[in-house]
């Protein structure tokens, strides 16, 4: 039945908890909140006014507000988390939107490093923390600003900025 598998033409609201889950393997709202909290220390309250949706297996969306589920639409809010692999991966745009609230697993890059990161390059960095998906940030106009997601592995930060979002920035100095 269509209500028991993931349907790529519609958005389905995530179940609140595992008890309400009907589509096998679908993430729950609680798991999503726990992920942001445990991995990046983004408090669950940040997402208080958001509903979470799935369209396409393992592609989660965050929408400010609520509408009836399921919804036949091209998009609802922002794609913000991939849950298909063992290690969940936030999108560049989600990190830019919500990463300001992160207090953990945020690597701050110097200007030259930040420029290489947004150009899509991999680079060695000095990081003593966890391996896996980090929020890369830099200082811009006096405050920390999240750039996107980097995969830290073997002493190297691998930029996950998608091709369409990469930029060769003009030299500021």
């Amino acid at each position: 039945m269509s209500d028991r598998t993931n349907d790529g033409s519609q958005l389905d609201r995530l179940p609140a908890t595992a008890d309400e889950r009907v589509v096998e393997g679908r993430a729950t709202r609680q798991e999503v909140l726990d992920f942001w909290d445990e991995r990046y220390a983004v408090a669950p309250e940040i997402f208080e006014n958001y509903s979470f949706w799935e369209k396409g297996g393992g592609k989660l969306w965050a929408f400010r507000g609520a509408v009836a589920s399921p919804l036949e639409a091209e998009a609802l809010g922002m794609t913000f988390l991939r849950t298909r692999q063992e290690h969940w991966k936030p999108t560049t745009n989600a990190v830019q939107r919500f990463g300001r609230h992160a207090e953990k697993n945020v690597v701050e890059l110097a200007d030259a490093e930040a420029r290489r990161f947004v150009a899509g390059e991999d680079q060695p960095i000095d990081w003593d923390g966890d391996w896996g998906y980090l929020i890369a940030a830099h200082d811009l106009a006096g405050e920390r600003e999240p750039l996107g997601v980097g995969l830290f592995i073997d002493g190297e930060l691998r930029s996950q900025v998608p091709k369409g979002r990469r930029r060769e920035l003009i030299d500021g100095e």
Partner: peptide, 21 residues
């Protein structure tokens, strides 16, 4: 043209939009 709209909306951090075709 909708794919351009979706790209722009996400880059601009819009979370309050539903997109239909």
């Amino acid at each position: 043209r909708l794919s351009a709209l979706r790209f722009n909306a996400e880059r601009l951090g819009v979370t309050s939009m539903a997109v239909t075709n």
